[in-house]
Design a binder for these strands. Structure first.
Length: 560
RNA sequence: GCGGGUGUAGCUCAGUGGUAGAGCGCCACGUUGCCAACGUGGCUGUCGUGGGUUCGAGCCCCAUCACCCGCUCCA
């Protein structure tokens, strides 16, 4: 499938526009048009219905407790210190003017030690003493260096660089330069103008000064744009859930295990927004934090991994394009016990791309918030504790004094085992990413009755328009009859009335919008009260009594 | 940020210095009997933006902006 064709259709039919397009747009931001907003709304509603209001039974067939929240986008900035976002999203980063790469300032030397050109260069030095000789370095600069580190000062201007280095070595023979200093000399072309410089691990060019490169959008709460008023637009919705963990517990009578869900916007100042809406700077997440006992967490991790994959399949994503992938050790977050990415093979990328991450986050988040907020976020398993008490105290039920003694003993010895920080399973899905996957998956070109057509094969639950109501021709009372049906269905469904142009053209228009059904009122309708149902996917037609039409739609739109 | 590409009607594009065009779409009227029918009429442009060269610039030159494609991040 050709991505450009999809983008063109989305624009032409009003699914997706570039944000603020009349001013030339804004990179990384997108608007949903009349059809797009319905599609995305249907996706979010399907998720809410299937995950929050009616999640599938648990691993042992039990009911799952799920509730929702809707938190503010802007939170107390301490939330982001606790979550680790301020630290990991705002590391001092140095940019390379040569190749444009960003390098974490604090890891520069570790990264350099692994770089290709550095490893090649280092072989030119004597292994133990670190001594060097100029002709060897000159030779390296003129051969290997040209390929491996084209922007390195030593490569660009070897005579000058080696002269500087010689001056340094001869000037202080009692204190020879260490490898770090040596490398800096080799990266410096104009010592007196710039001072010693640090090379880019990729191309060797002198790196610019370190700057905090924050992926979080910043703004100010209040009129005074002072540092103490700085706040962030949330980079994920999850932290609102963790911050409200205790509120939800205290206000709902929920017991472990249970989940809290949230759908909402999140913002990341991505370096490179790309691939249509796939990597946007403003996007919407559908997140669950499922809290459970540490001993049961693996069971729940597997449960959510399977439930989430099945959900996508159920809504029409073909299984061969949808792949769960267990993250490897090198990419997994340090606090995570296991993470599965559910990926979709988009037309724009050779490899499947992440739609959702199902992460086992252990007790990391609640522990962090406990430390930073100084609030006790532990969970006391009262039921289990009471059950234990009842069992252990049973022999002493007639001896009140003895019972109290035993109870005290038990409390000292056992009670702490029932007080713990829950573990968390986090299925975190991208609403815009799934919307894009649905669009890609739905797009099809086929022939119908010998004519080529473009059709969006959305699952009926997701289709922006559920049905079109069409009078076959605009006479003999057909428009009136059709309009009455339209008025009735409109109470319950998003339906569309169209009497413009020939019937064939109207069918094709609905095909491009992905409308699964067309109800056509014709001459026969006026006699026997039946209408034609025309199916989007194959153009097949059948007659149905006009008062059964709403039932047909209801049946097609039922979740399971 | 860096490199490469693109920018003319809603869309796809033509227009190599001399009056801005075509097809599709869209709108109106007529027609209509199940798959992008037909007829008639109509709307649509700071030729991305700013400057320069020229008697004259959509076209040549400079600058600038936006978007697209490739490089470290991620839902």
């Amino acid at each position: 499938m050709d991505m450009e064709k999809l983008v063109a259709l989305c624009r032409r039919r009003g699914f997706i526009f570039g944000s603020s397009e009349i001013y030339g747009g804004l990179n990384g931001f997108w608007d949903y048009g009349p059809l797009g907003v319905e599609l995305k709304k249907n996706i979010k509603e399907a998720w809410w219905q299937d995950m929050v209001r009616n999640p599938p039974p648990g691993p042992d067939g039990q009911e799952i407790s799920m509730v929702g929240v809707d938190c503010a986008i802007i939170m107390n900035p301490k939330v982001w210190e606790a979550s680790g976002h301020v630290a990991t999203f705002a590391d001092p980063t140095r940019k390379c003017p040569g190749c444009g790469r960003f390098v974490r300032a604090d890891q520069l030397w570790e990264i350099l030690a692994q770089s290709t050109w550095m490893n090649s260069l280092i072989q030119e030095f004597a292994p133990v003493t670190g001594a060097y000789d100029s002709p060897k370095l000159m030779k390296w600069a003129q051969n290997k260096g040209k390929k491996l580190a084209p922007n390195l000062a030593l490569v660009r201007n070897p005579h000058v660089v080696l002269a500087f280095l010689a001056t340094r070595v001869n000037g202080q023979p009692e204190a020879p330069p260490d490898l770090k200093e040596l490398t800096s000399y080799l990266a410096t072309e104009q010592l007196h103008a710039t001072g010693l410089q640090d090379p880019c691990p990729e191309c060797g060019a002198p790196l610019l000064e370190a700057k905090p490169f924050s992926l979080m959008f910043e703004t100010y709460a209040g009129l005074d744009k002072a540092a103490e008023n700085k706040v962030y637009l949330r980079p994920e919705t999850a932290q609102g859930i963790f911050a409200n963990f205790k509120n939800v517990l205290d206000s709902t009578r929920l017991r472990l295990p249970f989940g809290i869900a949230q759908i909402g916007k999140a913002f990341r100042n991505e370096v490179t927004p790309r691939n249509y809406t796939f990597r946007s700077r403003e996007f919407e997440q559908m997140e669950i934090e499922f809290f459970c006992h540490p001993d049961e967490s693996m069971k729940w991790y597997q449960y959510w991994r399977d439930v989430r994959k099945q959900w996508y399949t159920k809504l029409g994503i073909k299984s061969e394009r949808l792949v769960p992938r267990e993250q490897g050790k090198e990419e997994i977050a340090f606090y995570s016990i296991g993470t599965t990415d559910i990926e979709y093979l988009f037309p724009f990328a050779p490899k499947p791309q992440e739609l959702e991450g199902v992460a086992h986050r252990g007790a990391y988040d609640l522990t962090q918030h406990m430390e930073h907020s100084k609030k006790d976020l532990r969970y006391f398993d009262e039921e289990a504790w009471n059950a234990l008490l009842a069992q252990k105290l049973e022999p002493f039920k007639d001896d009140k004094k003895r019972r109290e003694e035993e109870k005290k003993k038990l409390e000292q010895a056992e009670k702490s085992k029932y007080l713990f920080i829950p573990h968390v399973i986090e299925p975190s899905a991208g609403a815009d990413r799934f919307t894009l996957a649905v669009l890609c998956e739905a797009y099809a070109e086929d022939t119908l009755g010998g004519e080529a057509r473009t059709v969006m094969r959305f699952h009926p639950r997701l289709a922006p328009i559920k049905a079109a109501i069409l009078p076959l021709v605009n006479k003999e009372g057909m428009p009136e009859k059709a309009h009455a049906l339209y008025r009735e269905l409109k109470n319950e469904f998003n339906v569309f009335y169209d009497d413009g142009g020939a019937i064939g053209r109207r069918y094709r228009r609905q095909d491009e919008a992905g409308t699964p059904y067309c109800f056509t009122i014709d001459g026969q309708t006026l006699q026997d009260q039946t209408v034609t149902i025309r199916e989007r996917d194959d153009g097949a037609q059948r007659r149905v009594p006009i008062d059964r039409v709403a039932d047909e739609l209801r049946k097609a739109l039922r979740p399971s």
